[in-house]
Amino acid sequence: MASVSETQAILLVHGPDRKGIVAAFSQTLFGHGCGIVSSEQHTDAESSVFYQRIVFDAAALHTDRVSLERGIDEVASRLGMTCEVRWPKPKRVAIFVSKYAHCLWELLLRHDAGELPGVEIVQIVSNHEDLRHVAEHFSVPYAVFKVTKDTKRAVEDQELALLKEKQVDLVVLARYMQIITDEFCDAFPHRVINIHHSFLPAFIGSKPYHRAHARGVKLVGATAHYATADLDEGPIIEQDCARISHKNSIDDLLRKGRVLEKNVLVTAVRAHVEDRIIVYESKCVVFGE
């Protein structure tokens, strides 16, 4: 796993490709007493955009964090790059869920097993009482907000107030069967991860596996993406698929789909909390573990 220690921070860089980018940021970190632990970079040949993720050890930082960030900002301005330093701190996560339990169980079990280091699951939000027992099993607060068409905005404001109170960094929609509003997305830009039960945009909407079965598809898939104002069109973080045949029933598709959904969602959440994602325009660059 690509987790970092309490003394390590991450620098994310992207912008127009040009000579000297790697050297400039490396020298800046070195000049402030920070050793580079690992570095991964990529240049998109079509757009000529450069991406880099640097893990550096800040234990021997000669100056304070503000001075280092100023130095990085100066280099970024000179090179026309966009940069962000992610200092080590726990990521506070809220999970939204309705009645499907498989993704919720997977996140909580993986977290309980220590497979999501640096994560604090501080709240579960639902529009139903059905899964309260799951939250209680893991001693996570569970709040129910009943939603109707007429009360949606008012209820969502209550949810946002709760998330602010809990200082939530990331919202995970673990098969939450409600459409969140533009205002919700704006409150958590690229910090709401949704799991979708197909390769987007195929078979969106209700009963996707039933319609996939009716069409005789040969693959079923799942997609984890950032939720945006454009429904199911946010930047894609992770996808996976499973092969099926004419021998498979709808129940087989549902079973295979559930496995894909929970695994894809956990993989996406890990990539986010480990600061391995750079969002650029409509896509994600996801660095390796």
Rank of each mutant, 00 (worst) to 15 (best):
Y176I: 09
P235K: 08
H210G: 01
L265P: 04
V55E: 07
M177Q: 06
Y142R: 12
A214P: 00
R78S: 13
G257A: 06
R175E: 05
D73E: 15
D232G: 11
R175K: 13
L104P: 02
V264I: 15
F30H: 09
A24I: 09
K99Y: 02
V66E: 14
G80Y: 04
V122T: 08
P16V: 11
I193L: 14
N263Y: 02
A154E: 15
L200M: 13
A2L: 09
V22L: 12
A9D: 01
K89I: 03
L116V: 06
K247I: 08
H111Q: 10
R132T: 07
A174F: 07
I36V: 15
T181I: 11
Y176P: 06
R65M: 11
D251S: 14
D186G: 03
V155H: 01
D130V: 10
V125A: 01
A135D: 03
V85S: 11
C185W: 02
A94G: 04
G118N: 13
R70M: 13
C103P: 01
K218R: 14
D150H: 08
H32G: 06
I121K: 10
K256W: 03
R153Y: 04
I36Q: 07
Y280R: 14
L108P: 02
I72D: 02
A242M: 14
E281W: 08
S126H: 06
T267F: 00
E74H: 01
A202M: 10
L104D: 01
H62W: 09
H246N: 13
I21D: 08
R191N: 12
V269K: 06
A143T: 12
E261D: 03
H246P: 01
F203R: 05
K218N: 08
R276A: 08
E159R: 09
D112T: 07
L131W: 00
A212Q: 15
S98Y: 04
A187N: 09
F184L: 11
D112C: 10
R215L: 13
F188E: 04
A268I: 02
G205Q: 11
R270P: 00
E69W: 02
K256G: 14
Q123T: 03
I21M: 07
L108H: 06
R215T: 00
P88G: 05
K91Y: 01
K152W: 00
A101V: 03
L265E: 06
S67K: 11
F145C: 03
D57C: 11
C103G: 12
Y100T: 12
V285Q: 08
G288N: 11
E120V: 06
K149L: 13
L254G: 02
R132M: 03
V75L: 11
M81L: 11
K89W: 01
R53N: 07
L109K: 12
V147F: 03
K247G: 15
L68M: 13
V93P: 00
R276M: 12
R270W: 00
L162F: 00
L163P: 03
H213V: 05
Q167E: 15
E129T: 10
R211N: 09
E129A: 14
R258K: 12
T267M: 07
A212G: 13
L200C: 15
E46L: 11
G234M: 09
S39L: 14
W87P: 01
K262A: 04
K207Y: 04
S26N: 10
A45C: 10
A24P: 06
L29S: 05
T148G: 14
K19C: 05
H14N: 15
